[in-house]
Every structure is written in C-alpha cells, then in structure tokens.
C-alpha cells in the first residue's frame, strides 16, 4: 500500500485542509502552542510534540512565517477532533503514544527535548518515496473483498503505523499552511473571480507560484 492509499484508508487524504481564521499573535518559542488556546483533542505531551514538529516541517524563513505562527496546531487539533471518528482517534492516539515513548526515552516528559531530538524522530520514522514501511508490511491491510462494508457503512479500521501518523501530520501541516487565509490571500496569488479561462506563461501569470484557489 502506498502512502496516498494509506492516508485515504485512514480518512486523512491530502486535500483541503485549513487553519482557523484567527490570526496570530506571533509566537516565537519553537514548541509552544498559541497562548490562551485549549486543545480539544491533544493532551499536553501530544500538543508539545505536534506543535514542535509542525515548525520543523515548515520553519520560519526570511519572508514567510512558520507553521506555528499560523496556528497550524490549533487547526490540526480541531481537525482530528471533528473529522476523525472515535476509533480513528483512538488509533491515532495509540500510535502517537508509541512515538512519544520513543522520543522520551527514560524521561518523565518532553521538557528537555530539543529540535534535534524531534528531527531524529522524524528522520527515523517518517518515510518518504522509495522507503518501505516495515511496520505496515508486517501488518498489511485486508484485501478488498466485497461491498458489504460500503453497504452497511462500516469500516475496516487499520491502526496507523508511526510512519503513517507522522506523514498524516506532515500533510495536515502543509495543507493547513497552504490554505491559511494569510497565505491564501497574500502569499499565494488569489483570484476569486477570474472571469476567463486561458492558458498562459507561468511566470507572467503567477510568478511561478500556484494559485491559492483550485
């Protein structure tokens, strides 16, 4: 099973993800969640973990904010709370716990972890194209049998592997970032009423960027 399929099975396909409108007191600290914000789904460790890795995935650069500056964590937390069903949430939490245990080593909590520790976890477990997810190989999804599940509205739940959870978080981070209002209206070219459909030169049309609306 490739990653896209895995994501689909988990109900976390790549499209359409967004940050909540509230924009942002610029938060400098690398692993802190937005001030005054209470997570709906994530517990303390999970919040620390996710808000740290979103800024590793999308760090601050010269001209553009980091993921946490756009409250990506708040988006992801709400997304997991509202889009995943209970069983999917439970599975995600279980796998996250495995990742967190690994990260903690013997430590009580995540207080002393540096961004290098987080990177090491991503380097180890988050796979990219061409790499094999051994955890998944050992526990492959059941082959499609018939339409019974579809008819009854039931699912063959599949607990995500560490790789799958980390890749889900990666895609959620990217999509949340890309469809954030700031990025969508001011960074990426925004064209709400195009009034025409034409083919043209990429540089002339958008300076090489993708349109924010599709």
């Amino acid at each position: 099973m490739n990653r896209r399929e895995a994501l689909k099975n988990l109900g976390l396909a790549t499209g359409f993800v967004v940050v909540t409108p509230s924009l942002i007191s610029l938060l400098q600290s690398c692993n802190s969640a937005p001030e005054g914000w209470q997570p709906v789904f994530f517990n303390t460790d999970e919040t620390t973990f996710v808000s740290s890795i979103v800024d590793i995935i999308i760090p601050k650069t010269e001209d553009l904010p980091s993921a946490s500056e756009l409250n990506v964590i708040e988006f992801i937390d709400k997304y997991v709370a509202e889009v995943l069903d209970e069983q999917e949430q439970k599975h995600m939490r279980e796998t996250l716990a495995e990742i967190l245990n690994n990260l903690k080593g013997g430590a009580e909590n995540l207080d002393k972890k540096t961004s290098d520790d987080y990177k090491a976890i991503l380097d180890k477990y988050m796979l990219v194209k061409g790499e094999i997810d051994e955890e998944r190989e050992a526990n492959p999804p059941k082959p499609w049998v018939d339409h019974t599940n579809v008819i009854n509205g039931t699912k063959d739940y599949l607990k995500p592997t560490k790789n799958e959870v980390l890749n889900n978080l990666k895609w959620l981070t990217i999509n949340a970032y890309r469809t954030n209002e700031q990025i969508g209206e001011n960074v990426m070219p925004y064209d709400p009423i195009p009034a025409q459909y034409t083919c043209g030169d990429l540089q002339e049309l958008t300076g090489g960027k993708a349109w924010s609306l599709s």
Binding site: F16, V17, V18, P21, K78, E82, V83, E86, T179, E181
Partner: peptide, 13 residues
C-alpha cells in the same frame, strides 16, 4: 474560501 470552511471543507465525522 477554503479558510472560511470548517476543517478546510473536509467532511466531519
């Protein structure tokens, strides 16, 4: 726009 929709428009559970 996508940012005006809950969860970017992804169907809720």
């Amino acid at each position: 726009d996508p940012w005006d929709l809950p969860n970017g428009g992804r169907p809720s559970a």
